[in-house]
Design a protein around this nucleic acid. Structure first.
Length: 561
RNA sequence: CGCGGGGUAGAGCAGUGGCAGCUCGUAAGGCUCAUAACCUUGAGGUCGUGCGUUCGAAUCGCACCCCCGCAACCA
């Protein structure tokens, strides 16, 4: 029994649109690979996330479609679950930010910050619509540019002359929705006193120099060195977690608190904590074993736009609790994934939909390809031709074909007999090294390198097979042919385990083909290592099919049609 | 002077002072157990540009050029 515990915290998909390959690359796939790997090692690994349901983009989208925010959210949540099932993302719990539990935890976090003196009340000016009798977020406001006097400009920057605008500079501002004029009005909000937390946050970050990826560390420390500002945690909006003003002394309540909600960034990250609590409560566990136990390491997975929220603001929220919560141990952050050399964007129309692409090609192929182009240190690019080549030659030709040629040879030429040999020591060393290297790479957020180790091992297998020519030995020296295939089957078994975190469905299919139990990630065994496989324990299925089918150009053309 | 990342073979990338590497693609050869798969060998690079430090620079310094992220849709 391994006493170590790991919390895998994947970014929360924002439910105002469909999931696409950017989300897959950003957190779904890397977080799942890591979780599966960690569980195969026998480590108690809790993997949580959920739908991020609050915030202005949700209300904007809902308004645009003439439905309520809640209706919008309820429409998208099942779609996210569909993606999770389709790709086999092995969450312990995938919840949402609209649960009672999340509301309570968020309010508790706020009250603790308040109690510990990290919350400020501040008044500022905000656009207000008299007609609607409500404050409007900046994104809802348009007006005339004070510099070039073009109409219909946003409040922060003029698209016509390119100049950025100070707050309140817009001439004749009006609501984007109702076109009714808006005025600046004073409003009161809560802020987190980040300048007060800055010292502790910086110390935390400096402690991770060398363990975090270089660019992640530099970007974080660069941001801190500019000086942290007080940061608003409430907004004038009616969609979100309510502020528990009744739990505060009268003089500390902000005015019109019932018309305000927590800002989405504040409550979304708290989801990691609230989801762990929800999961533990439902399963008779104690969340403190994950959040207060110093042997529990927290791995976070997200895209680069979320960097400061997870390396600065969220740690600050946790530090300010004074509850000795574990801080993020390793933020596995990726850059953006482009498609065909262009940024993914709805307006460019080059979004590749996660559901559609898995329906068409199968989730494992997408998992494999995305992992091979993961934007670990610089932007990645989805290219259809590259996709075809990668899947056909690396996955099908190298890995898939090695497995298939070994198993068909064993079954058809050697009658699937139960012979036993000593394992070639050189091969054994290579297999053991592959397990070590893949593990080390995964623990450092280097998924591409981890995958390359697996490809290398498969290449070793193909070389071993070719060099030893078992098909010739078959005619002259059957025991030698058996010995060679015995060794190859050990390699196949190693690959079965090694590919499991990356392409679980293929790994499970291979287990079935061998009559083995599929790798059970929940059980308490250390499975991610080399173990000699006895042929007595396997039964190759009658109808042996290749694990991966080739992708033809027509498939791609059909998908893009 | 905003902060940060990147520019290395046709494509995608690794490589932070010591003969320029990996995967794919490509050329030639081999094999026939296997999904025309696999194996071997080869071609292909002024390491963005210039200057400098050094016995030695992709790697360190300075200057410059180009692409990208942090601010709308968006991970």
């Amino acid at each position: 029994m391994n006493t170590k515990k790991i919390l895998v915290a994947a970014a929360w998909p924002y439910v105002n649109g469909d999931i696409h390959i950017g989300h897959l690359a950003g957190y779904f796939i890397p977080a799942d690979i890591f979780t599966r790997y960690s569980r195969l090692k026998g480590i108690d690994t809790v993997f949580v996330s959920g739908s991020d349901c609050h915030g202005t983009p949700i209300t904007v989208e809902a308004d645009k479609r003439g439905i309520s925010a809640k209706e919008l959210v309820n429409e998208y949540i099942p779609k996210v679950h569909e993606i999770i099932n389709q790709y086999g993302i092995s969450y312990s719990l995938f919840t949402s930010t609209i649960t009672e539990n999340h509301k309570k935890v968020t309010q508790d976090v706020f009250l603790n910050l308040f109690k510990n003196g990290y919350i400020l009340k501040k008044k500022s000016l905000q656009y207000f619509s008299d007609t609607d009798n409500k404050f409007l977020p900046d994104r809802y406001v348009e007006g005339e540019c004070p510099h070039c006097h073009s109409q219909g400009q946003r409040s922060d920057q003029c698209e016509n002359c390119g100049r950025s605008l100070g707050f309140g500079e817009l001439i004749n501002p009006y609501s984007k929705l109702t076109k009714a004029p808006v005025t600046l009005k004073e409003t009161e909000h809560y802020f987190i006193d980040y300048p007060k937390l800055e010292g502790q946050i910086k110390e935390y970050v400096l402690n991770h120099e060398g363990t975090w990826k270089d660019w992640v560390f530099k970007e974080t420390i660069g941001f801190i060195n500019e000086g942290l500002q007080e940061r608003a945690i409430t907004r004038d909006l009616d969609w979100g977690v309510e502020i528990p003003v009744n739990d505060l002394p009268e003089e500390e309540r902000i005015e019109f608190a019932d018309t305000k909600r927590f800002y989405v960034w504040f409550d979304a990250v708290i989801g990691y904590l609230s989801a762990t609590i929800e999961y533990c409560n439902a399963n008779g566990l104690d969340y403190r074993d994950y959040w207060n136990n110093k042997d529990a390491k927290h791995y976070y997975f997200m895209g680069q736009d979320n960097l400061t929220f997870h390396t600065i603001f969220w740690p600050g929220q946790l530090i300010g609790q004074n509850l000795n919560y574990n801080l993020p141990y390793f933020p596995s952050i990726v850059k953006f994934l482009n498609a065909n050399g262009q940024k993914l964007s709805k307006s460019r129309g080059n979004i590749i939909d996660a559901k559609k692409v898995a329906d068409h090609f199968g989730a494992d192929l997408i998992r494999f390809y995305i992992t091979s182009i993961l934007p670990e240190n610089k932007e990645g690019n989805w290219d259809w031709n590259d996709f075809k080549n990668s899947v056909n030659s690396e996955l099908g030709g190298n890995i898939g074909n090695f497995i298939h040629r070994v198993l068909t040879f064993y079954k058809n030429k050697l009658n699937a007999d139960k012979f036993d040999f000593e394992i070639d020591s050189e091969l054994r060393n290579k297999i053991e090294l592959a397990f070590t290297n893949v593990g080390d790479f995964l623990e450092n957020g280097q998924f591409i390198s981890a995958l390359n180790e697996i490809k290398k091992l498969s290449t070793t297998g193909n070389q071993y097979f070719d060099y030893n020519k078992p098909w010739e030995k078959l005619k002259t020296d059957i025991p030698e042919a058996q010995r060679i295939i015995f060794n190859c089957i050990q390699l196949v078994n190693a690959l079965r385990i090694l590919i499991n975190p990356f392409i679980p469905a293929a790994s499970n299919k291979l287990s079935e083909n061998l009559g083995l139990n599929i790798l059970e990630s929940e059980i308490d065994h250390d499975q991610f290592k080399f173990t000699k496989l006895s042929l007595a324990g396997i039964t190759v299925v009658e109808q042996l099919q290749p694990l991966f089918k080739k992708i033809e150009d027509e498939h791609i053309t059909a998908f893009n049609a």
